[in-house]
Design a protein around this nucleic acid. Structure first.
Lengths: 299, 299
DNA sequence: GTTGAGTGATGCATTTTTTGCATCACTATA
DNA sequence: TATAGTGATGCAAAAAATGCATCACTCAAC
């Protein structure tokens, strides 16, 4: 798409903040790039960059244009994807922003299942918290977001939602292993290993503890869900996670016990995309597969 | 926007159905145009035109692309409009598809009121029936539609709706002139002048007559609302129209009497745009003005 | 202050791309 | 079977984009 090169150039200047740096990324001379920008501004009818002594910065007009550029590029990708689908071969690239819990089991399984059928579709997966994920959609950095307990949902259009109770995880040797269900106050008798306060599971647990007039004092607090699992597996601590982040078969040395909904209500896992967007076929069909898988997993 | 020239060329070829004809419209040689199309198809990754012995026709991939082109052009117009608004001067072009009833009084008044404040905004007004209006929105041929009793409303996003009772119009000399309200069967004693069957007002009247077990037999049936008004003014016939298509001041020789809602329920006049679209500032603000005017007129 | 390293802008020669002309191969229609 | 329409293409000319060298300017460090 040679005729859209100017858009790449504008984005490059925006990213690097200077024509000279952007020129390197674009494999072009600074003078050529400079004149492309100038010519474009002439045609566009107004400047899109502020000229600062230290470089270039988008002005408000440029910000509006940038959003248009991203949107139109995404829509072109959608067209490409649909055209490929016309000829029976599904092609495309799917960008996903997701909560950490989806990383270890769920997404790898779903992606490889999908790629078994459509090997020409490639994926990008980025870990994003509840706020960043939505921002990613707005900036067209991601096609799909899969988020536990999202924050705003303003620009978020829900494709599918499933309820996720909070599960306690522990070594099979743990005194509480084998119970059908756990009360939160039972857990608090033992060492706790909790995700950092910004994560959805932690927010739910904190709220539940507050309701009991208690405060959770974790033995280990981490921003890595991997760490939570491993510490719970080898130590005597109790970790917490939602079902989609767990896999019974993969961890015979661990037990997963639901925390009673009388204490912790659980939260919702949302699959969605940017409000009003038309997804490329590849992304849309993957979303359907994920939605089906989520429903099946719950049952 | 030189870099979007290729899109104009593609549309030109699509419209004229042949490279040679399109070349004339584009002020370019057929050979140059031909090679631009070929180069584009190479970059795009698939052909977008079928080569027929009699010319070129878009293939399915081309249809998808064409829709993208129109959409992105409209979105660029939106950006331009918003950028102009940034500098305080509102610029832009507003394309309106509307029912015939809006033409004589309502739209001219609103457009000139708007242009008094924003003289740099220009307008296109096209008369479209209830089905065509929605199609216009889908093809990005119109920004706004103002339709009485729309048909599908699938791709139609409603900005505003007002109820419009059906009014009977007649010369002040007509025997029924001066009544506060009319029953449909009273009208049927006299010559009727009705719009053609596809129009909203007619549909409502036909339904009402059917409910009475009668069938309307107009003395004059026409697809021109102008004709309805004039015939009713000079002859002894009774015409029908919705309030927004009438202006008491402009026609002292005519009387407008509401038809009882016990017979004819009236219909709704909808203002809207293509579902999911972001309108240019010029169009959006005009829509607000129209919405306000419609509400005020009803009161 | 002075200096130096960074910025964007610009004149000019060179390279690349686009265009126009002439012509070919093909196909319906009369 | 002639004819008038279609798209495709080789080649030279025109136009556009690029690269190099350099200017004018700002800001931070000395």
């Amino acid at each position: 798409m040679r005729h859209l090169m100017i858009y790449d150039m504008i984005e490059a200047v925006h990213r690097s903040g200077s024509i000279r740096k952007a020129a390197e990324d674009t494999n072009i001379t600074a003078s050529a790039l400079n004149r492309r920008i100038q010519t474009f501004e002439d045609e566009f009818g107004s400047e899109i960059f502020e000229r600062l002594p230290r470089g270039m910065r988008l002005n408000p007009a440029g910000e509006l244009l940038l959003h248009h550029i991203r949107q139109q590029r995404q829509d072109l990708a959608r067209v490409h994807s649909q055209v490929a689908d016309l000829s029976g071969v599904r092609r495309g690239h799917v960008k996903i922003a997701c909560s950490q819990a989806l990383l270890p089991y769920f997404l790898p399984r779903e992606i490889s299942r999908y790629r078994a059928e459509f090997p020409n579709v490639t994926f990008t997966v980025n870990v994003r918290d509840r706020i960043q994920a939505e921002q990613d959609l707005v900036n067209f950095d991601s096609d799909l977001a899969l988020v536990f307990e999202p924050a705003h949902m303003v620009d978020f259009e829900v494709l599918h939602a499933v309820h996720q109770p909070v599960m306690a995880l522990m070594s099979t040797a743990h005194p509480l292993a084998g119970r059908e269900s756990l009360r939160l106050r039972d857990c608090m008798e033992y060492d706790l290993v909790l995700p950092a306060p910004q994560f959805g599971v932690r927010v739910l647990l904190d709220q539940a503890a507050a309701k009991l007039g208690r405060k959770l004092e974790p033995a280990l607090e981490t921003d890595s869900f991997d760490m939570v699992r491993h510490f719970a597996a080898y130590g005597q601590g109790i970790g917490f996670q939602i079902p989609v982040g767990l896999n019974t078969l993969a961890r015979p040395d661990m037990t997963f016990v639901p925390v009673s909904e009388r204490d912790v209500l659980g939260g919702d896992l949302y699959l969605g995309h940017l409000r009003g967007r038309t997804l490329p076929v590849a992304a849309l069909k993957f979303a359907h597969q994920v939605a089906t898988a989520l429903s099946a997993a719950r049952a």
